[in-house]
Design a protein around this nucleic acid. Structure first.
Lengths: 119, 119
DNA sequence: CAGTATCCAAGGGGATACTG
DNA sequence: CAGTATCCCCTTGGATACTG
């Protein structure tokens, strides 16, 4: 790993990033926001199966790390918009690399699993 | 996402890959094996803090997906070697992209967290 | 609309001890 | 050496209902 960071540390940022990316809903949200800002309910509708609780938690986590922004436009009924920050948008690059890899190697992974299952 | 795969599916391979990468010990093992094959105890010593249970589980999972190979060389005491497969080695590429991103953006993430914490 | 509040189940992961 | 076997905790995440 990079000499400046200790990958074994629980607080190592690489680790945290990996973990956040691997979290249940992160990529869905980041991906949804790639097209532009979205409101809470829009996201909930777009990401089928997510509960408000999970959506809130993931949004807060992403906001904490500066990957998305939350803008309260006030009014009644409320109007809140979530958007990718520049930092969040830059994350799309490595994310695409992973997805690319995953899609390229689906056959190999599937084959490996079937081999493992039939044993 | 790629048109051929349904990312919302629980069994979507992209999802599983992300999850596996994000798992606690995966990157440690993959990274350790980059230098060459290793034995169980070598890995355990190299990856400080890992318990035999966690090591076994992660190795099995990686083997199931065809990312590493397990070779029993027999004998007594036993001699088992783990190595990256070609597939596993290819995973190093997107993994490096993520790490690169993480290390590049450490300052921004840290700053965002401190901003979030002081509120 | 944009969330909170609860409750609950599953399992990931750690600590420790033991074995073929 | 290369694992198993337990036990236990605690976080993640789902379901459901409610609110300013």
């Amino acid at each position: 790993m990079g000499k400046a960071y200790n990958i074994m540390s629980a607080t190592c940022v690489s680790r945290v990033v990996l973990h956040r990316i691997g979290a249940r809903w992160t990529v869905f949200i980041v991906n949804a926001l790639e097209a532009g800002p979205m409101r809470f309910t829009q996201l909930k509708a777009h990401i089928r199966g997510i509960t408000p609780k999970a959506l809130t938690e993931t949004l807060r986590a992403l906001e904490t790390d500066g990957l998305i922004s939350r803008t309260d436009l006030g009014g009644n009924p409320p109007h809140v918009e979530y958007a990718l920050t520049d930092l969040g948008r830059s994350l799309l690059v490595p994310l695409r690399a992973v997805r690319q890899w995953a899609e390229t190697h689906v056959p190999e992974i599937t084959a490996a699993r079937e081999r493992a299952a039939s044993r």
